[in-house]
């Protein structure tokens, strides 16, 4: 019975999809390198948006600086490419000024968790309604391959020539601890699962963080002796992860060293803009001076 439902769901998702509806075709070709997963993530995102029922005018996509932050330039929404690390702050301004807009932020591991770390935790704490996609490829790609807060310890990069001595962040644990009300992890390898996760993330009212494991074969792969982009995807995204639901049923030794995929945390908590409306009622109740 459950298998049947899953098959039906899968068939529904595999209907040919016309991405042209959402792409600014005259802005192509994109800047992403061959083997980069960003385009795959974007396709999952566009399919998820299509199923959300939102119009293009209702969506505002905001980004910071980096490879993933170039995403808004290619999509036909209200779009904003801002400063390194500050996407969430610009997005907060847009959202509070115009709460009817659906905010989607595309950011990277360096953008969101290093230079933008402070904005990341406080956005999660406020639980302001926005969907945050952290494309996590464990490297600064735009600047040519320096280690980031999600680079695994021991990895090589152009600024860790003897292996990275810093431990890495778990983006999802960080988001959850900071107060995000929806936290999930997907990969560029599991495209349909990512689509389903993003549908839920976009639908969520509050701060939704989705960390997306994504490979950078050019700058991470070459320095760390991966043979190809597809080998990286299989090793890091496929073999290095396990669905959270499946992990629960397995003995700990089989889960050890793997990152969990799927929706990891979902709670209801008052959303910031709604709280602001309540504050306005209070202010009006007190009357004008």
């Amino acid at each position: 019975m459950s298998t049947g439902a899953a098959t039906a769901k899968k068939q529904k998702l595999s209907v040919p999809f016309d991405y042209n509806k959402y792409i600014r075709k005259n802005k192509l070709p994109h800047i992403w390198c061959p083997g980069c997963g960003h385009g795959i993530v974007l396709k999952s995102l566009l399919r998820a948006i299509d199923k959300s029922g939102l119009t293009k005018d209702q969506i505002c996509m905001v980004s910071g600086i980096g490879c993933s932050s170039r995403t808004p330039g290619y999509v036909d929404f209200n779009t904003m490419h801002t400063l390194h690390g500050r996407a969430l702050s610009y997005a907060t301004g847009v959202k509070l000024a115009k709460p009817e807009l659906k905010i989607i932020v595309t950011t990277g591991d360096g953008d969101a968790l290093a230079i933008g770390g402070n904005h990341f935790i406080h956005t999660c704490r406020r639980n302001i309604d926005m969907t945050i996609l952290v494309y996590s490829n464990a490297i600064y790609g735009m600047t040519g391959g320096q280690f980031s807060p999600t680079t695994p310890q021991g990895s090589m990069s152009t600024t860790s020539r003897y292996g990275n001595i810093e431990p890495s962040f778990d983006c999802c644990e960080l988001a959850k601890a900071a107060g995000a009300t929806f936290v999930a992890r997907g990969t560029a390898y599991h495209t349909q699962e990512l689509e389903r996760t993003l549908i839920e993330a976009v639908r969520h009212k509050g701060t939704a963080v989705v960390e997306i494991l994504d490979s950078c074969p050019i700058y991470f792969g070459r320095q760390n002796k991966y043979k190809s982009a597809s080998q990286m995807m299989e090793q890091i995204e496929k073999d290095g992860t396990i669905p959270a639901a499946q992990a629960e049923k397995l003995p700990p030794e089989e889960v050890k060293g793997k990152l969990l995929r799927g929706i990891l945390h979902r709670v209801e908590r008052p959303e910031y803009c709604e709280q602001y409306l309540k504050l306005v009622e209070k202010a009006l109740g007190k009357g004008n001076e």
Binding site: V62, R86, S89, Y90, T92, G93, V94
Partner: peptide
């Protein structure tokens, strides 16, 4: 930093 960023975002809205 976040303050001026939010201000610019709101102005664009």
């Amino acid at each position: 930093i976040a303050s001026i960023a939010a201000v610019v975002g709101a102005s664009l809205a």
